[in-house]
Computed example of a mutant assay.
Amino acid sequence: MGKTIDRESLPYRPCVGVMLLNDRGQVFVAKRCDSKDSWQMPQGGIDEGESVREAALRELEEEIGTGKAEVLAETTEKLRYDLPDHLLGKVWKGRWRGQEQVWIAARFTGTDADIDLATEHPEFDAWKWVDADDLPDLIVPFKRPVYEAVLKEFETVIENLRRR
């Protein structure tokens, strides 16, 4: 029998997420290489000594091949999700129980041609722009409450871009 992992003893991974928005107020999502239909917004760990905004722009470069973005807003509180039992102890070398995230809303300042998923360590194999209302249905269930909170917090930012 396998070793039981004590979820409560594990910390949350400090992380940044990026809601990248185009000028129509649509949200960038990408499909993970390691699953058949798991879409998400760019996100990743915050390195020691790195600001949230620096981490956000670095993650965009690393995950989608471009940092062409203007930061518009940041969530007022950190948002958390826990890994489901079947992933606990398997991802991130078993060091974390989930992620504690600060989210950034950013306006994409490039063109679609600037997005290149063929990065040094590809995480995604497809991407698209989606209407904000359609976003939660694309996301794995254990991350959905965080995405709904991000949408609610950034709804004014999204509306302002739609009206431009």
Rank of each mutant, 00 (worst) to 15 (best):
R144Y: 11
Q43W: 02
E48A: 05
D37M: 04
P145W: 09
A105P: 10
K128Y: 01
D112C: 08
L88P: 00
L117M: 13
D37S: 13
Q99T: 12
R97L: 05
V16D: 04
L117T: 12
E74F: 06
F108R: 08
L83A: 02
K36P: 02
V150W: 01
A56T: 08
F142P: 03
E54W: 07
I104L: 10
D47Y: 08
K128G: 01
R58E: 09
D47A: 13
G67A: 12
T111N: 14
H121N: 14
D114A: 14
K36L: 07
S38E: 11
D23W: 04
E74I: 09
L72I: 10
G94V: 01
M19W: 05
T111G: 13
D47C: 05
R97S: 02
E120M: 06
W103Y: 15
R24S: 03
K90N: 10
F28P: 02
I115K: 00
W103A: 04
G98D: 02
E61F: 10
P14L: 06
K143L: 10
Y12V: 11
G44K: 00
G67F: 06
W127H: 12
R13M: 14
A149N: 09
F28Q: 01
R13F: 06
V150Y: 03
D137Y: 05
K143Y: 03
V150I: 13
G44T: 04
F108P: 04
I64D: 06
I104V: 15
H121D: 15
L79M: 15
E74Y: 01
D82T: 05
E59L: 11
L88C: 01
L57R: 13
S38Q: 05
V52T: 15
A118E: 15
A56G: 14
I115S: 00
Y147M: 12
Q26A: 04
R107F: 02
N22T: 06
E50L: 10
F108S: 08
Y81F: 15
Q99C: 14
R58A: 07
G94Q: 03
C33F: 00
P14Y: 03
Q43L: 05
D133T: 09
A56V: 09
A30E: 02
